[in-house]
């Protein structure tokens, strides 16, 4: 243990601080989450496999992962643009927009869901507008993507913003002096620096979107095989008093999103080190 917990600092309080952290983490997070695995284990391997590989569950995985991925991608692209505009340009109302970015964190998901459905349904402000050019949003996978984009919006902006603020302008200037065009500078100089932050924002937005229920269920349509998200299937299982089945699906989702976070963590670490090298 001594070796595992080696401390390289002269600061005091490492033992108690780590002790309390581990204790609180265990009580609040690890023990409750272990219930998920315990309950799933009561199923046995074959019925576990049967549960998570049924066509409806597979279809919902496809939908949930697909829409979450798309929403996170939209957030990466537009989040970068928003962050860029907020950091680099001056315009009236900038502070207000900056302030609003965190709204999805603060607004309860059910309220967000109701508000988005109201706005995007055929009678809503935007829904009627989009409807007139033939795009249906509410109660289609597109609606799900809209809700998930809203939920994950702050992650990318807030991850990129501080990095952009700290970005050394001299590098850009040097690139320009060397005859690089603006977009070349961006692609070869700025983007690699922003990459870890973008990845981290993407990962958080993706993980958050994957589990989201409250806002999505209002706008999703919930048609089996077509617009049924995985969290809704978990509820369906519960409705049949099948707790073990519900936890089985939840476990697969948890492992998947954990794996995503882990891979992205690694990727970030790797790109960080490559830059330093």
């Amino acid at each position: 243990m001594k070796l595992l917990l080696k401390q390289k600092s002269v600061l005091p309080g490492f033992g108690p601080a780590l002790g309390f952290t581990l204790f609180y983490l265990t009580i609040i997070v690890l023990i409750p989450i272990s219930m998920l695995f315990l309950k799933t284990a009561t199923l046995g391997w074959s019925s576990f496999w049967e549960t998570v590989s049924s066509p409806r569950v597979i279809a919902s995985f496809g939908l949930s992962f697909g829409t979450s991925f798309t929403a996170a991608l939209i957030n990466v692209i537009f989040g970068l643009i928003v962050a860029w505009v907020l950091v680099r340009y001056r315009f009236p109302g900038k502070k207000i927009i900056d302030m609003l970015i965190d709204l999805p964190f603060a607004l309860p998901t059910a309220v967000a869901g109701i508000a988005l459905t109201t706005a995007f349904s055929e009678r809503g402000l935007l829904g009627s507008l989009l409807g007139s050019i033939g795009i249906k949003t509410a109660f289609t996978p597109l609606g799900i993507i809209i809700a998930l984009t809203f939920i994950g919006l702050p992650f990318v902006v807030r991850a990129v913003q501080p990095v952009l603020e700290d970005l050394d302008k001299e590098m850009e200037e040097a690139a320009v002096c060397l005859g690089a065009r603006r977009w070349q500078t961006f692609v070869h100089v700025i983007l690699p620096i922003l990459f870890p932050a973008l990845m981290s924002g993407f990962a958080m937005a993706f993980a958050r979107a994957l589990g989201e229920y409250g806002s999505v269920v209002f706008i999703a349509g919930n048609i089996p095989m077509k617009s049924e998200i995985t969290p809704l299937l978990i509820i369906t299982k519960l409705e049949q008093y099948d707790y073990a089945g519900a936890t089985a699906i939840a476990t697969v989702m948890l492992i998947a999103s954990f794996a995503c976070l882990f891979i992205i963590n690694r990727l970030q670490w790797w790109s960080h080190h490559r830059q330093e090298a």
Binding site: L25, V29, L30, P32, I33, M35, L36, T109, M204, A207, R208, L210, G211, E212, Y213, G214, T230, P231, I234, I235, L238, Y243, A246, T247, A250, M253, L254, S257, F258, L261, F262, N265
Partner: peptide
């Protein structure tokens, strides 16, 4: 990563556990 764990759990599941 473990501290981030609650981010990755669906809210319904967080209640369920």
């Amino acid at each position: 990563t473990l501290i981030d764990l609650p981010f990755t759990v669906s809210p319904i599941v967080s209640g369920l556990i």
